[in-house]
């Protein structure tokens, strides 16, 4: 059998693909963070809790209302995004003029509270959520079995990332947003309601986290801790990509997923650490991140 670095080639290809799948989650979550940081200058530490809320909302829609996965895919980002709008309107907007640290502390605190409330209500073991019947089963790729659902996650995440990038970089709305980040009062002078735009941007970033939560529900245990496990890694991804860089966070998300996947083969014990080692190196060599502007 063909071997690469002592690892059978089929196994290696399989791991690359799995890395890409995990990278899809990193990319979607870091995308939301990058959008929020880029336009609001808020380090949104509630992101993990919002991801978790997305998964729980999908579960609630199914078990309490009887609405399936496909409906959840549309409804959940809107519902959880609306909670984000409310949160921005009630609390976060009071912190824009202060140091980053205040926004970080507020969102981190809210994240802990939300996680605690869900733990009290639903316990810590998690809830079952089945893969939708249309996406169950697996493809035989020769070198591995690829569950249809994982393929769907990668494709869907790529489309969402691309769409977000197009909206921000190529449309008039995106141009307003980018202009408002540079000079909010000037944009306001042109008759654009900047505060409302910022509120809706936060809602959209939260909606992205919730959407990732719906995608994750059939794969991971739907439990209150699911977000906090992921969020630290995702922050490292954002830092490596460059805070606020949209394209950077997407490429880094997928790239680090692959690096982590390979680590799981060559040195499994280090797979939880490798991303942070890369982060340290990037911060030393390029403090603004790989795609950031210094």
């Amino acid at each position: 059998m063909d071997e690469i670095f002592g690892i059978p080639a089929p196994l290696l290809f399989g791991q690359l693909l799995l890395g890409l799948i995990n990278g899809a989650f990193y990319a979607m979550l870091s995308l939301g963070l990058a959008v929020i940081f880029g336009l609001l200058n808020i380090i949104n530490f509630t992101h993990g809790a919002q991801f978790m809320m997305g998964a729980f909302a999908a579960w609630m829609l199914l078990n309490w209302v009887g609405l399936n996965y496909w409906v959840a895919l549309i409804l959940v980002p809107i519902i959880i995004g609306a909670t984000g709008v409310l949160m921005e309107w009630l609390m976060i907007r009071r912190l824009y003029k202060l140091d980053h640290l205040y926004g970080l502390l507020l969102t981190f605190g809210i994240g802990l509270i939300v996680e605690g409330l869900f733990r009290n209500e639903f316990g810590s073991s998690g809830l079952p959520y089945q893969i939708p019947p249309q996406l169950s089963g697996a493809w035989d790729l020769g070198f591995m079995f690829l569950p249809v659902y994982r393929g769907w996650v990668v494709a869907f995440a790529l489309v969402i990332c691309l769409a977000t990038w197009i909206v921000i970089e190529k449309t008039r709305l995106g141009a307003y947003l980018r202009a408002a980040t540079e000079n909010a009062s000037l944009v306001q002078a042109f008759g654009i309601n900047v505060p409302r735009m910022v509120t809706l941007t936060y809602g959209a970033g939260v909606g992205l986290a919730a959407l990732a939560g719906v995608l994750a529900a059939p794969i991971y245990s739907v439990n209150p801790q699911m977000g906090s496990n992921l969020i630290i890694v995702v922050f490292a991804v954002v830092v490596i990509g460059g805070m606020g860089s949209i394209l950077g966070s997407v490429i880094t998300g997928f790239g680090l997923g692959v690096v982590e996947g390979l680590t799981k083969v060559f040195w499994p014990e280090a797979s939880a650490t490798v991303i942070f080692v890369i982060m340290a190196i990037v911060l030393l060599a390029r403090p603004a991140g790989l795609f950031g502007r210094a």
Binding site: N229, P268, T273
Partner: peptide
């Protein structure tokens, strides 16, 4: 055997594929 970091591992697919192979 494969040792998975604890806590902090949520995705086991990589290890399951290794196990399978």
């Amino acid at each position: 055997s494969v040792r998975t970091p604890f806590p902090g591992t949520t995705d086991f697919s990589s290890y399951l594929v290794q196990a399978q192979s």
